[in-house]
């Protein structure tokens, strides 16, 4: 018991250390190592955290999907705690993605916002997972909230590609991902910086997920204890 706690703590310290170190390296690389984009100028460097955060947001919602299926299958609140945690972190990252994207679009596109496929589907995604958090907050019973939000976690994620394609068919104006476009090829320094930033942001997500899940588990435990005490006191009275 105690050894597993110690082991868990050691692993957490290792994770946090890795996160801090890789993030510092990524930050240094995006400032000093990556070359400045000839067309877009300095502001292009927003990409080194905008793109990784978008990736992490999708990853977070995918984790919600996996944990939702896991919960409905096993009926173990540990799955649900992780789903809750990941949904909240995903909303945080999606919010930051929308804001940083706007700040890039203003000087480059000369508009804060445009209704193109990727922007629109990210915004709709944000709404779906805000609804997810609201559904949890508004459903008083924990077991029921877990079940309902698991259903939404599944339906919402299945809807993501459908939303994406339908909006794309509707209209689009987003630069195709530079990495897969054959020409003009982004210089290797840019790609390396982006890769390191991706690793850094994924580590940030992992740290958040561990801490947030631990918080939910502790709260569940406290709630259980409180309910048991209240029951005992009621039976004494």
């Amino acid at each position: 018991m105690t050894s597993s706690v110690v082991q868990g703590r050691a692993r957490l310290i290792a994770l946090v250390t890795a996160t801090v170190v890789v993030s510092a390296v990524a930050l240094a690389m995006m400032i000093f190592y990556a070359p400045t984009d000839r067309v877009q100028g300095v502001v292009q460097r927003i990409f080194y955290f905008h793109v990784p955060m978008a990736w992490v947001a999708y990853l977070a919602f995918f984790v919600v999907l996996v944990c939702s299926v896991g919960y409905l299958w096993r009926r173990d609140l540990r799955w649900d705690a992780m789903a809750r945690a990941s949904a909240e972190i995903g909303v945080l990252f999606t919010t930051l993605v929308l804001i940083t994207g706007s700040l890039w679009a203003k000087p480059i596109w000369n508009t804060w916002w445009t209704w193109d496929a990727r922007l629109t589907s990210t915004l709709v995604l944000w709404f779906i997972y805000v609804a997810y958090l609201m559904l949890r907050a508004y459903t008083p019973d924990l077991e029921r909230a877990a079940r309902f939000s698991a259903v939404l976690g599944i339906v919402g994620f299945i809807d993501v590609p459908i939303i994406h394609f339908s909006v794309e068919w509707w209209r689009t104006l987003h630069p195709e991902p530079v990495v897969v476009r054959p020409d003009p090829q982004a210089p290797p320094e840019m790609l390396v910086t982006l890769a390191v930033s991706l690793v850094a942001m994924t580590l940030v997500y992992a740290t958040f997920l561990v801490l947030r899940t631990a918080l939910e588990r502790t709260r569940d435990e406290n709630r259980e204890r409180e309910q048991r005490r209240a029951l005992e006191e009621a039976s004494y009275a």
Binding site: V43, R45, I46, H50, L96, T100, L103, P107
Partner: peptide, 14 residues
């Protein structure tokens, strides 16, 4: 200057 300004704003928000 404008370019750096937007970069700093985005970085600070993040």
């Amino acid at each position: 200057f404008v370019s750096v300004g937007f970069l700093i704003a985005a970085g600070a928000t993040t």
